[in-house]
């Protein structure tokens, strides 16, 4: 299937989204909630593009728009730029003190109207849902969106410590605004209102993963060995290699 993005002729397969095709051809479309390997979420809406199909023009979210034959796509027009600025302004009101959103606002030269700004607001989450998706991919499904409207947020059921959570921290890693707090402290990890015990390396005694995450890894590999951290494993492997060479002399 052939289509044009910003004048560049791109090749795509049926069922692919505009974002996927653009990424593959090295065309940048701004976005916060798109991640390769994930289905498009269409939450941040920064990936708006203009699609021209015959004589019809429309504005679509490129991360969920399935490509069609012979469409002409423009990533940035004046109208889209105005829309993106509006979206960023709203994001800025949602997370006024977040450094990532502020950087984005600076880049797009956006300032939010002061009368709606709460300088003490410490909200960082923009409700993009990447963390929920990452948790789903892990197979844990510990977090999801809860409540509606202005009370909407990402949390565990009833904000309780979830028994499904394994404390891997993937949610915090994928977060575009660094909104999820992971506290590691002397063998304990605190995340999503739950405290996890960390696994201690049986050789050096350093803590390297939560017990639950380590157990999941062992289940996947059918492995029942004593926990050893990656540094110590490397040392053991190097030691074996050393032995084989030391014996030569």
């Amino acid at each position: 299937m052939k289509l044009k993005i910003d004048g560049i002729i791109c090749e795509g397969r049926e069922g692919e989204t505009l974002m996927e095709v653009a990424k593959r051809h090295g065309i940048h479309i701004p976005s916060l909630c798109y991640r390769k390997g994930f289905e498009g979420l269409a939450r941040c809406r920064l990936c708006l593009v203009e699609v021209k199909e015959g004589s019809r023009r429309r504005i679509v979210s490129s991360c969920v728009y399935p490509i069609k034959e012979n469409i002409e796509v423009t990533v940035t027009t004046d109208e889209i730029q105005r829309m993106r600025k509006n979206i960023i302004m709203l994001l800025l009101l949602k997370a006024p003190n977040n450094s990532y959103i502020n950087k984005l606002a600076e880049e797009y030269k956006v300032a939010a109207p002061e009368r709606y700004m709460n300088p003490l607001d410490d909200e960082n989450c923009i409700l993009c849902g990447l963390c929920v998706k990452a948790c789903e991919k892990m197979g844990t499904n510990a977090i999801s969106f809860v409540n509606r409207g202005i009370y909407k947020k990402v949390s565990t059921p009833y904000d309780d410590a979830s028994k499904d959570c394994i404390g891997c921290g993937a949610c915090a890693e994928v977060c575009p605004t660094n909104a999820i707090l992971v506290e590691d402290n002397e063998g304990k990890r605190k995340i999503w209102n739950r405290e996890f015990n960390m696994v201690k390396c049986s050789l050096c005694g350093s803590y390297f993963a939560t017990e639950e995450a380590y157990k999941l890894m062992q289940e996947k590999l059918n492995d029942n060995e004593e926990p050893i951290c990656n540094e110590c494993r490397k040392k053991i492997a190097a030691d074996k290699l050393k032995e084989s060479f030391a014996n030569i002399y």
Binding site: E173, V174, A213, M217
Partner: peptide
């Protein structure tokens, strides 16, 4: 770009 940073691979690698 696909990696979600769960660090499973880090603890799984037999050679660290």
């Amino acid at each position: 770009e696909k990696c979600i940073g769960c660090k499973m691979c880090v603890s799984a690698c037999p050679f660290g």
